[in-house]
């Protein structure tokens, strides 16, 4: 039973992103600002850093592909970005101590990296023609604020879940 719980958690966050965008009317904030939830990225990062590193990367790969197929219809961008960023974060954690605050800061940095990477790629394939300063003000800063709020609420529960999972793996 435990085995299936973790994929279910990932699927839940995968759906939650879309539900969040749908439910939140943009006028609540300001319709000029674009808030992009990156909950799935955060969960994948916590899995990689607290749970099992390789499994975290595989989850990144699978859900990156799913994200591409279902939400963007351009396969490759998230398939590449999710595992890459999770890998960079796991390398960074080797140097730093694994404290929940440090992990949270790393997650925020990762989201910035993800947003930048996705923006650059979309700019390259002409999905967007937004210029960089507009991107910073309209997208990046509001997105960071939203995801910081998410991390503050969910960091501790996620840490608990994945630490338990890591412990159960060690027992087996």
């Amino acid at each position: 039973m435990r085995k299936y719980l973790l994929p279910l958690l990932f699927i839940l966050f995968f759906i939650l992103e879309s539900l969040f965008v749908q439910t939140l009317p943009a006028e609540v904030f300001n319709s000029e600002r674009i808030l992009a939830p990156r909950f799935l990225m955060i969960v994948i990062l916590f899995m990689t850093l607290y749970g099992h590193r390789d499994q975290g990367l595989i989850y990144g790969l699978v859900f990156g592909l799913l994200f591409d197929v279902v939400y963007t219809e351009i396969i490759g961008i998230y398939l590449f970005m999710f595992p890459l960023i999770a890998y960079i974060a796991s390398k960074l954690m080797r140097i730093l101590q694994s404290n929940i605050v440090v992990v949270s800061v790393i997650s925020i940095l990762s989201i910035v990296l993800l947003e930048l990477g996705v923006y650059e790629m979309n700019y390259l394939i002409n999905v967007t023609n937004m210029d960089f300063s507009l991107f910073l003000n309209q997208r990046l800063f509001p997105t960071i604020v939203l995801n910081v709020a998410f991390i503050i609420i969910f960091a501790y529960p996620l840490k608990r879940i994945f630490e338990k999972y890591a412990a159960s793996l060690r027992e087996d």
């Binding site: 759906i15 992103e17 879309s18 539900l19 969040f20 965008v21 749908q22 674009i34 808030l35 992009a36 939830p37 279902v70 939400y71 963007t72 219809e73 351009i74 996705v118 923006y119 979309n122 999905v127 967007t128 997208r139």
Partner: peptide, 15 residues
């Protein structure tokens, strides 16, 4: 009925 929306907000797709 709309059941999903692209969360990354680049592509503006609805499901």
């Amino acid at each position: 009925t709309v059941i999903g929306r692209n969360p990354d907000r680049w592509h503006e797709l609805l499901i």
